[in-house]
Design a protein around this nucleic acid. Structure first.
Lengths: 150, 150
DNA sequence: CGCCAGTTGCAAATCGTTTGCAGTTCACAC
DNA sequence: GTGTGAACTGCAAACGATTTGCAACTGGCG
């Protein structure tokens, strides 16, 4: 399963991303720019290692990719997803968007379908009220077997 | 946050669990029985290490706890949860129940509230139909700040 | 009572991720 | 430009959860 269905119809271009990053008063280095460029082309959450592998050979160390992803997450340009295997995956975040959405993951081939919209918000509200919690959010991912794997 | 709210009102007793386990044609050993006994007393998902720590000192190796939990999971007596930190947690499963439910986790103190019921099933159905997926399930956990931590 | 597949302890191995440290470089000041 | 210091990077070692190889051990059936 490799389809890149209806997702991120219009990824921002590199210059725009770079500008956004600079606005956060961060140093724009080769590795960071390259990581942004890779993320820009991903239709689905990408693991650190995948990003590393997609980088021009030897551009930088794996540790640097991890550090770059942390910075990008901290400044809100990237969102971390946990798709159920213990591997962190990252997606570029549109400016000013919290990027809240979910995924449908094939448990056979690990293929991913992006799900737009989220209907759990009311539940969230109710839970917060009932339990006195603040700042309630949620993590929701779907798993199943995709057509190709059945 | 340590409250053990409205959860598992009636945990099965040890003999019953032991019988269930035996029915799966597994060897009932000291460590396994002890792990069941610990799980029986948990109101919330417990990490392998917590279970290990709660065991009579020196009863068995940590590796054995991991192995026991795997067996219990395989025979459907225990369910694994991922509460967002990279640590597996386990809850005893009532017989014949798939134990599907969710949790509300405090991001400050890691306290857990058990959530009963689940309203995502219709969404699940729709996703399966729309994407041609089979056997669709989901993983949903809520995070927030509990009253005591605010 | 004996056997042996299933279990266990122990230590070493994995795997994703993080970190200490010394050397390098970006971005702003002059 | 050129200098400078804070940020950044490479490398290798450290980490923490979990798994595994292997030899010794033990439930539970015959």
């Amino acid at each position: 399963m490799t389809e890149r269905a209806h997702s991120h119809p219009e990824q921002p271009d590199l210059p725009e991303l770079v500008a956004r990053f600079r606005r956060q008063s961060r140093k724009l280095t080769g590795p960071r720019q390259a990581v942004l460029e890779i993320l820009r082309r991903q239709a689905h959450p990408a693991a650190s290692k995948e990003i590393f592998a997609a980088l021009p050979r030897g551009l930088c160390d794996l540790a640097t990719v991890y550090r770059a992803l942390h910075v990008l997450e901290r400044v809100g340009m990237v969102k971390r997803y946990d798709l159920g295997d213990g591997i962190a995956r990252f997606e570029l975040l549109p400016e000013g968007d919290d990027g809240h959405h979910h995924h449908l993951v094939c448990t056979r081939c690990a293929g991913v379908v992006e799900i737009e919209g989220c209907s759990v918000d009311e539940v969230e509200q109710r839970l917060a009220a009932q339990n006195g919690f603040k700042a309630v959010t949620h993590r929701l991912e779907f798993f199943g077997i995709c057509p190709a794997c059945q």
